[in-house]
C-alpha cells in the first residue's frame, strides 16, 4: 500500500456518515397518486375476470392473464411499497429473492415436464 515511508493519511470522505434518508417519504407519492394506482389495479382485476369468461384461444388468454398479474404485481411493489422511490439497496434485496425464486422453481418445474406452454403459467 504505502510506497514511501509515510503515506499522508487524510480522513476519507466516507467518514462523514451518510445522510439518513429521512426524506424518503418526501419522495413518496401523494394520496392522489395512490388512488390512481388503486383504480388501475381494480380495472386490471376486472379485466382479468372478464377475459376469463371470454372465449379466447387458451394461449392468448394465458398470456393476457400473466400480463395483467405481472402489471398488478409491479404496480403494488413500485408504488405502494415505494421501490420506485426508495434506495436501490432495498430493490436489490427484493429483486434478488424474486429472480432467484422464479429461476430455480422454473427449472424444477421444467425438469418435471411442466412448461408454460402446458396448462399453466
Amino acid at each position: 500500500m504505502a510506497s514511501s515511508v509515510q503515506t499522508p493519511r487524510q480522513v476519507p470522505e466516507e467518514l462523514t456518515p451518510a445522510p439518513r434518508h429521512e426524506l424518503d417519504e418526501a419522495r413518496h407519492p401523494g394520496v392522489r397518486q395512490y388512488i390512481v394506482v388503486a383504480i388501475v389495479l381494480a380495472l386490471a382485476t376486472l379485466a382479468e375476470v372478464v377475459l376469463y369468461y371470454l372465449d379466447l384461444p387458451r394461449g392468448l388468454l394465458v398470456g393476457l392473464l400473466l400480463f395483467f398479474a405481472v402489471s398488478k404485481f409491479a404496480l403494488v411493489v413500485l408504488f405502494f411499497m415505494h421501490l420506485k422511490f426508495d434506495n436501490p439497496i432495498f430493490r436489490r434485496l427484493f429483486v434478488t429473492g424474486l429472480l432467484l425464486a422464479i429461476s430455480v422453481y422454473a427449472v424444477v418445474l421444467v425438469i418435471f415436464g411442466i412448461h408454460p406452454g402446458g396448462n399453466q403459467g
Partner: peptide
C-alpha cells in the same frame, strides 16, 4: 497493519 508498519524505501 498499516498503523504498525510502513514500507521503507
Amino acid at each position: 497493519w498499516h498503523r504498525k508498519y510502513a514500507e521503507g524505501q
